[in-house]
Amino acid sequence: MMLAIDFVVVAVIFVAAVGAMSCKNLVSSVLLGGLASLVASYLFLRMGAPDVAMTEAAIGAALTTVIFLVATRRTQEVEE
């Protein structure tokens, strides 16, 4: 049962990563990258690393995505 869930999770990671690389819209690809990171934190939890899972969820998934979104917005803004 757990193995089946792991399989689905790995599939989600793969699809999210491929989507993040191939999506035309920058904001969606950044969000898909954040999704891959968030789902990876579940895998860390399964591998007996709750500390790493917390770090990945708080830093890898949240803060990194926010920094990417800010940078995306700042590079798409039309200069005055």
Binding site: P50, D51, A53, M54, T55, A58, I59, A62, L63, V66
Partner: peptide
């Protein structure tokens, strides 16, 4: 589980 790095990240998200 947790510690300085995770707690610091949570504080930073409050600032965010």
């Amino acid at each position: 589980p947790g510690g300085g790095f995770q707690g610091g990240a949570v504080v930073a998200s409050a600032v965010l």
